[in-house]
Design a protein around this nucleic acid. Sequence first.
DNA 1: AGGTAGCGTGGGAGCGCTCCCACCGGTGAT
DNA 2: ATCACCGGTGGGAGCGCTCCCACGCTACCT
Lengths: 351, 351
Amino acid sequence: MATHGARGRSGGRPTLEEVAARAGVGRGTVSRVINGSPRVSDATRAAVEAAVAELGYVPNTAARALAANRTDAIALVVPEPETRFFAEPYFSDMLKGVGAALSDTEMQLLLIFAGSDRERARLAQYLAAHRVDGVLLVSVHADDPLPDLLAQLEIPAVISGPRSSAETLPSVDSDNYGGARQAVEHLLSRGRTRVAHITGRLDVYGAQRRVDGYREAMSDAGLGADEGMIEAGDFTEEGGHRAMAALLERHPDIDAVFAASDVTAAGARRALRDAGRRIPEDVALVGYDDSAIARHMEPPLTSVRQPIEEMGRRMIDLLLTEVADRRPLASRGLERRQMVLATELVSRSSS
Amino acid sequence: MATHGARGRSGGRPTLEEVAARAGVGRGTVSRVINGSPRVSDATRAAVEAAVAELGYVPNTAARALAANRTDAIALVVPEPETRFFAEPYFSDMLKGVGAALSDTEMQLLLIFAGSDRERARLAQYLAAHRVDGVLLVSVHADDPLPDLLAQLEIPAVISGPRSSAETLPSVDSDNYGGARQAVEHLLSRGRTRVAHITGRLDVYGAQRRVDGYREAMSDAGLGADEGMIEAGDFTEEGGHRAMAALLERHPDIDAVFAASDVTAAGARRALRDAGRRIPEDVALVGYDDSAIARHMEPPLTSVRQPIEEMGRRMIDLLLTEVADRRPLASRGLERRQMVLATELVSRSSS
DNA sequence: AGGTAGCGTGGGAGCGCTCCCACCGGTGAT
DNA sequence: ATCACCGGTGGGAGCGCTCCCACGCTACCT
């Protein structure tokens, strides 16, 4: 490595100081221009901008981070193995929204997977080093220690699905309860009466809310709550298959199924086929997520669409607010920092 | 924001200096321990490590980056829109290998998409700010300006597929030529004689090499080079469908197809079905990549497997070497920095 | 006229680390 | 005994920036 003194000065990247000299102003002024402070005269600003352009000046991020005690980076933390991340369109949509919201910002987005214990330990170290200004948390389970760690480190965070109705972190979610109702009411409006539900992982709050929506839509329609019509799945295809098989065994006369995810619905479909049931003639099927799977299934799957991209965008908005508030220790608190977005039923031929 | 003087000292994160005081040694010694220098006595090392543990010291990355002029981060740059990244298992496998190779390192991996012009401009700015120590380039087209930019900025880089036979950057690739030969020879050994080829995007060097492999395997078998049996695809399903339809029109007697990717093969399969051809009875089909698609196709698709995870791992090895070499300006140069890994044919019922 | 805002500005101090030089004491060679 | 040497160590200088205080100046008050 080059010796300390020999670096800089000649050849290397230009520094703030050099820009200042070139523009004939002081360091402070250049810094103000770079950071868009309004307290600079137009003439000075122009001179500085010219010097910046001539020298091809690019601020040194490390120096800025050190002096200002911020990193201009936020992390999207996915407490799942890579595999699931890529398998589920949920994440890629979310990423798209997040990317879009960030694209006219100086913020850098980091994608961090924390599926294994080892990765989680690494993440903890990473956060302890305050290498990001804020964290976006997706798909967090009820007992995850991550939110507490973040709170303790005083790192702003926004969570996608609240962990419970008493979530303390700012959150953005879709209306799981309402979405489930939409699905069930749709099936009922089609004349179905024996509607079963395959749930998601029940340690995910959103999955519980879908169960709530199912239950209440059924009882509102005067169709008592037969708990035998509810079977636990886990958001996987295999789980959907298993659950559907169990349901058919208990209630061979089922005429409709609301599955908590499209992948689950795909598993259910397989079990229905195995049992010789036709879709939708014998059994109508509705999924959740409106993913690519839904469109390509045979028959195409009716599904509840969540505005995932939009959720990503809103999460960024919330997080950036949190990060900015951090500085003047604002009167934070009771403003509504929980956001719920509406879902939409996409009707296809499976129902 | 807290005033400058008031930060640190009390309450905040412990600094090197505080650890030094606690351990009763100098700053330099703590730094040496943190960085694993051998020039520290065992007793001193133990004392420092104890102090680090007691204080919960975590080095300040920004300060380190500023002082040492390195970032301890590398970027995986994907010059494609997010969509393709998620659609193709290639990338997720690569990411897995890269992640594995990096997991026992201090290096942080950044994932950067540069599909749009806007994103590319952002990336250029990012690289100009030297925010990463090195770059991993995947799926680069022949005319991409990125490699030149990296060279100009003197940022070490490793490329996955070479851009041409004269690639100057260190690269890791699978044996596209050999893989294509494997595929064709497999088809020939099954008694097929009218073997067509649907290519990938021909501005990708690897796709060209597959064509070469196809051509030479055919002519080595004494089956002249009928250029009409080659049709250009573009790695997409739609392209595969179109190409297959064109081939069938020209040569209705085709009895085998080697497609340059599994996705392409999926498109070809659809066109074959449309034309009433049975697979493999009428036409045998071989793909490339051995992705999930291959396993789930009907019938399951014979495919050429590239050791993508392994490639990711090797790329990291090469890149870390480059990054390290940078420091003592080593005798770089003629050592072999192009790496080619063998492929493997996975035989299934489509052929 | 003197007083007093307030804008636009320059530059000192400091962020927490790495690098390097100087220094210490104990070896082994002379 | 003298000296060069070397492993082990302390701490100064500096990385490039932000923050803030202080300063000059103009414009407006009384």
